[in-house]
């Protein structure tokens, strides 16, 4: 259909300028975040008990043999850095997907028990079933999908309401966390560090074997999620409006849930449920990007930055070394409280 009276050119230009301004802001934020993530990643490789300068680190990453650095950077720090990067991207991406889809900042996978499911299954697999490597990942992914399904079914009553799903998810998450704690008490020989990995998340002792499945999952499922970003943005307007705009609501939701749960479950199997990263990344990204388009990419980058920086802080900034999840937990908990106070004041609309 064409308008009988074409709109004034000045208005069309104003609309175009407005749109360009919004996309410039978004691209600028994404670029800055990407640079910061890259910088934090490089610093992660440089610092440690021995400091290696930038050029040696780069040579190691490019595959050159550098005495000393090749082992420390190549075998110890690189897997840890890559895991931090992959896990951060995965947590950020999955978190903002859930938050956008359910139109609620509390709806992130770590609040509604999905990460707890993956963590509990991983611990159960390792301690009770003596599994290792890919088997642990498989169990974790299956459990995360299972938990997502259970939460979905329990909260489904002629449609999924965000608030009901979140409350049920929090309950399920608490149950699963107690499973994790219980299983850890059965693991006598298990040291404190390893236990913390499954309670709050840790990058200690990262190996390529652990990183690989998470990386592959992110590379396969991440692009599928990004392909849904427009449909997810339409879902923000409400299910009916999105459907009226030609979005196949249930299909979009199914793809988004499966992919988001997939990336986060593989990441959790590698480093445990790093506390609050998927919960924090979306809202932080929203603050700095503003209402200027999809938050998937910015939130993924914020997630990566959070994990990388929190790991640096946990390792070097304090007198004791803390696993990354302790640091992100300290950041996340106050925000959770703030959010609950704020939504209560707004009339509990969540």
């Amino acid at each position: 259909m064409t308008a009988v009276v074409p709109p004034p050119a000045a208005t069309v230009d104003a609309v175009a300028r407005n749109r360009v301004r919004r996309s410039v802001r978004r691209r600028l934020v994404i670029t800055v975040l990407a640079v910061l993530v890259a910088a934090a990643f490089v610093v992660t490789l440089m610092v440690g008990r021995t400091f290696y300068p930038l050029d040696e680190v780069v040579r190691v990453v490019l595959g050159e043999r550098v005495p000393g650095a090749s082992f420390t950077v190549g075998r110890l720090r690189l897997p840890r850095g890559v895991l931090a990067l992959v896990a951060g991207l995965a947590f950020g991406l999955a978190g903002v997907t859930f938050q956008t889809m359910l139109r609620n900042p509390l709806a992130s996978p770590d609040v509604i028990g999905i990460t707890s499911g993956a963590g509990a299954a991983a611990v159960f697999g390792i301690v009770i079933l003596s599994l290792g490597g890919t088997a642990v990942s498989t169990v974790a992914v299956a459990a995360a999908l299972g938990v997502a399904l259970v939460i979905y079914l329990l909260s489904f009553r002629g449609g999924v309401a965000g608030t009901r799903l979140i409350l049920i998810g929090i309950g399920v998450g608490a149950m699963l966390n107690s499973v994790t704690s219980y299983v850890l008490t059965r693991a006598g020989q298990w040291d404190y560090q390893e236990a913390l990995r499954w309670l709050t998340g840790s990058l200690n002792g990262a190996t390529w074997e652990a990183v690989a499945p998470a990386l592959v999952a992110l590379l396969v499922l991440g692009p599928v999620l990004l392909g849904q970003s427009r449909n997810l943005s339409a879902l923000q307007l409400g299910d009916d409006t999105a459907a009226a705009l030609g979005v196949r609501v249930e299909r979009t939701r199914l793809i988004a849930i499966v992919c988001a749960v997939g990336v986060i479950a593989f990441a959790t199997a590698a480093c445990g449920p790093i506390a609050f990263v998927s919960f924090l990344a979306g809202p932080i990204a929203a603050r700095i990007v503003g209402p200027n388009g999809s938050l998937l990419v910015p939130a993924a980058l914020v997630g990566a930055l959070l994990v990388l920086v929190a790991d640096l802080v946990g390792q070097f900034a304090l007198d004791t070394r803390y696993p990354v999840g302790v640091i992100t937990g300290v950041l996340g908990a106050p925000y959770l409280i703030y959010l609950i106070i704020r939504t209560n004041r707004a009339g509990g609309s969540l």
Partner: peptide
Amino acid sequence: LLPQSPIAPE
């Protein structure tokens, strides 16, 4: 279609 209560993102 304009539904009865569409949601404007914050």
